[in-house]
Simulated assay, not measured.
Amino acid sequence: MQELRLLDPDGYVVPEGRITITPTTEAKARADLRSLAHDHAVQWAFAGYDHRNYRIVTT
């Protein structure tokens, strides 16, 4: 099975940013991770984080 990981701008995996996927769940998982990136960036805005600098990688 594949896994999607959300990486912050520094390259670290965001807590709760790992989701095991199947072909039918990948689109929803990516949408959930984009939402998580936005929430995480808001939380860390004082450090200059921006949700556009997060990456989703497949492992």
Results as ranks from 00 to 15, higher is better:
4 L>R: 10
5 R>G: 00
5 R>M: 10
5 R>Y: 03
6 L>W: 03
6 L>K: 02
6 L>A: 07
10 D>V: 11
10 D>N: 12
10 D>T: 14
11 G>L: 08
13 V>R: 06
14 V>D: 00
15 P>R: 11
15 P>N: 11
15 P>Y: 09
17 G>L: 07
18 R>Y: 00
18 R>K: 15
18 R>H: 02
19 I>C: 02
19 I>S: 01
21 I>L: 07
22 T>V: 08
22 T>K: 12
22 T>N: 09
23 P>I: 06
28 K>E: 14
29 A>T: 05
30 R>T: 12
32 D>Y: 01
33 L>Q: 01
33 L>A: 01
34 R>G: 00
35 S>Y: 07
36 L>H: 03
36 L>W: 01
37 A>H: 04
38 H>F: 11
38 H>M: 10
40 H>K: 11
41 A>I: 04
41 A>E: 06
41 A>K: 05
43 Q>C: 03
44 W>R: 15
45 A>V: 08
45 A>L: 08
46 F>C: 07
46 F>E: 14
46 F>D: 15
46 F>S: 15
49 Y>M: 11
49 Y>G: 02
52 R>C: 06
52 R>Q: 13
52 R>M: 09
53 N>L: 12
55 R>L: 13
56 I>K: 04
56 I>C: 03
56 I>D: 01
57 V>D: 01
57 V>C: 00
57 V>N: 00
